[in-house]
Amino acid sequence: MAGLFDEVTETLFANKTVLEEEYEPDTILEREDEIEEYKDALKDVLFGRNPSNVMLYGKAGVGKTAVTTYVLDELQQATREREQADTLYVHRHNCNDDTVFSAVRALVNQLLPEDEKQFPKKGLSTADAREELYAQLERVGGTHLVVLDEIDHLAEADDLLYELPRARANGHLDAARIGVIGISNNYTFRNQLSSKVKDTLREEEISFSTYDATELRTILYDRAEKALVDDGYTDGAVGKAAALAAQDTGSARQAIDLLRKGGEIAEREDAATIEDDHIDRAREEVKRGRLRDKIADQSLHARHVLEAVAHIEHNGDTPVRTKDVMKTYQRIADERGDDPLTTLKSIQNHLSDLQMLGFLIRHEVNKGQSGGYYYTHELDMEPDVVFEACNELDKEDAV
C-alpha cells in the first residue's frame, strides 16, 4: 500500500529555514548606517567603561532585533580579544504585557547558577527582586547589557529605566557595570517617560526607517538564493514581493513571508518556478495570517473591543461612537464568561490603542456647541478576519 507522502519527492525550497522568522543572517543588508550608529554607541565597552544606554525605534520587521543580535555578537567577540575590556554578558527579555517585577525576576533567573533555585513568582516585592538582581550582577562581575524588547509594553517602565542605569552610581554595583538597550515599535515611547528618567538614561537613539522597494529586493535576492533551488523563482516574483511589502509596511519580514508563501502556493500547484501570480495570491494569505498574529498579541479585553467593532461593522453601522461599542463589548464579554470593563474611559483607551496599532480608523466629529466633540470608529480590515481570529483564540484559551 502506497504511503501518504510517497509522491512528495521534490521541493522548490533548498533551505526553507532561511525564510523563517527565527533565521539569523550572517550578514545584515541595507542597515549599514544603523550598525555604525550602534557601534559608536557601544564602543566604550571595549575599554572597560560604563556602556551607554541605547533606544531603538522603528516599525516591526525593519531589522531592529536582527541588527541588535549581530552587533552584540560582534561586540562580545571583540571584548574577548581586548585586555582592557571586561567580560560582556548579554541578557534578553521580551516585555510584552509584563510587569517590572516579572521582568526583573526573569533577569535574576538568567544570572542564577544552574543548580540554584529560581527566584519565586510570588511572596516577594519588586524591591526584593531588584536587590537580588544587583547581588547576582556583583557575583558575576563584568559588563552587562540588558536588552528589553517591546519595552513600550512594560507596565511602569519608568521604575526600571530609572533604577538600572543608576545602580552603579547609587552604590548597588561595584564589580559589575550595566547598560540598557530598549527596543520599541512606538516612536512616542520616550515622550511617555518622566523627566527624571530621561535625565538618567541619557540614551543614544537609533531610528530604523522602513525599507523601500530597492532595499527589499536586495534582501529578498539574498534570501532567495540561499532558500530556493536554482531557477526556482523569477526576477518578477522577487520584485513584486518587494514592491508589495514596500507599499504596505516597508517590512522585510512581510517581503520574506510573501516569497515563502508564494513558494508554498507554487508547490501546491506543482509549478517549477515562483511566478508573479503566486506572489499576488500569497499577499492575501500572508495578510490574514499577520492580522491574526497581531490580534493574538492583544489583551483579552482589547480583543473583545475589537470584536465588538467588527460586529457593528458587519451590520453596517459604522462609524460608531464609544458608548455604542461599549454595549456590544459588554455583551461579548458576558457571552465569553469574562467580567466586562465597566467604565467608558477604559473602552476609550482600548479603542485608542487599537487605532494606533492600525486595527481601526478614527474620525473626529465636531458638532459645535449644540452637539459637542467626539470620536467615531470603524474597522480597517475585513470583519471576517477578526471573527476567525477571535474564534480560534477562544478555542485555544479553552484548552
Rank of each mutant, 00 (worst) to 15 (best):
D97V: 04
D98E: 15
V100C: 13
F101H: 12
F101C: 12
F101G: 07
A103Y: 02
V104A: 00
V104T: 02
R105Q: 07
R105Y: 01
R105D: 00
A106P: 02
A106W: 02
A106Q: 02
L107H: 04
L107P: 02
V108Y: 07
V108C: 12
N109C: 05
N109L: 05
L111M: 10
L111N: 11
L112F: 05
P113G: 13
E114C: 07
E114D: 14
E114L: 13
K117W: 02
K117M: 08
K117P: 04
F119W: 10
F119N: 07
K121F: 12
L124V: 12
S125Y: 03
A127R: 08
A127W: 00
D128T: 03
D128A: 06
D128R: 03
A129E: 01
A129Y: 01
R130Y: 07
E131D: 10
E132A: 09
E132Q: 11
L133E: 00
L133V: 01
Y134E: 03
L137Q: 00
E138D: 03
V140R: 11
G141C: 07
T143W: 07
T143S: 12
H144M: 06
L145S: 06
L145C: 09
L145F: 06
V147S: 13
L148F: 13
D149N: 14
D149W: 10
I151F: 11
H153Y: 14
H153D: 14
A155M: 12
A155V: 11
E156K: 15
E156S: 15
A157F: 09
A157Q: 11
A157Y: 08
D158P: 02
D158Q: 04
Y162W: 07
Y162A: 05
E163L: 00
L164Q: 05
L164N: 03
P165I: 05
R166A: 15
R166K: 15
R166V: 04
R168W: 07
A169G: 05
A169W: 06
N170Q: 09
G171Q: 11
H172A: 14
A176P: 10
R177Q: 15
I181H: 11
I183L: 15
I183H: 10
I183D: 04
S184F: 07
N185L: 06
N185D: 04
N186S: 09
Y187T: 10
T188A: 10
F189V: 02
F189Y: 12
R190T: 06
Q192S: 14
Q192G: 08
L193Y: 04
S194N: 14
S195D: 13
S195Q: 12
S195V: 08
K196C: 00
K196F: 02
K196P: 03
K196Y: 09
K198W: 00
K198N: 05
K198G: 01
